[in-house]
């Protein structure tokens, strides 16, 4: 029993740690810096270690360019490499592995009109993020890299979230009354 005790403690601590968002935040931050240090020779831009919107753009446009022979715009690091950056495919695979291992994989369906709204939201979010040049994650990486304009993005995003949450709160109150 005495021998098992520290191992259980370590296991408990690691399971709490893995489930805490701050641990993932630290992981992304350090590994994004590491991947830039490792791979920057392939091409820019800087502070590009992890970004859901940009890397989706690179993956889709890069594969379209390879398969269909088009020349859609994408970041230099993906243009120069053999294949474009694959982190979004990795996120899908990693999320699927974790959901399956922990029995949290559930098919959740919606209505067709919901699918349409989510599809349009996807198009809109990607285009808005590309106008800025990054999703919330690259904004955080750019802030860490010292780009002060990215702080403006984060502050504006917080303002948008507060307005949206306020509107949803009002709507919920109206439906209750």
């Amino acid at each position: 029993m005495e021998l098992r005790y520290p191992r259980d403690t370590i296991r408990n601590i690691s399971s709490v740690l893995i489930r805490h968002p701050a641990f993932l935040g630290a992981t992304i931050g350090i590994l994004a810096a590491f991947s830039q240090a490792l791979l920057i020779s392939a091409g820019g831009p800087e502070a590009y270690g992890f970004c859901v919107a940009c890397h989706t753009r690179d993956l889709v446009n890069g594969m379209t360019n390879i398969v269909a022979g088009t020349s859609l715009a994408l970041a230099a690091i993906s243009k120069n490499s053999l294949l474009p950056v694959m982190s979004v495919a990795g996120v899908l695979i990693g999320g699927y592995i974790s959901a399956t291992l922990h029995r949290e994989h559930r098919i959740k369906k919606g209505t067709r009109i919901e699918y349409l709204w989510y599809f349009l939201a996807g198009v809109a979010v990607l285009n808005l993020a590309m106008i800025f040049g990054g999703c919330p994650y690259r904004a955080a990486l750019r802030t860490g890299y010292g780009d002060l304009t990215a702080i403006l993005f984060i502050v504006a995003m917080a303002a948008g979230v507060i307005l949206g949450a306020y509107l949803m709160l009002k709507k919920a109150e109206r439906e209750d009354a």
């Binding site: 992981t27 991947s35 490499s81 053999l82 474009p84 982190s87 996120v91």
Partner: peptide, 21 residues
């Protein structure tokens, strides 16, 4: 680097996806 870009980002993405889930 041009060879390792897809590989390293894929592994990074799998780790991030696992922890994010």
């Amino acid at each position: 680097a041009i060879f390792f870009v897809p590989l390293v980002t894929l592994l990074l993405g799998i780790l991030i996806g696992y922890l994010a889930q």
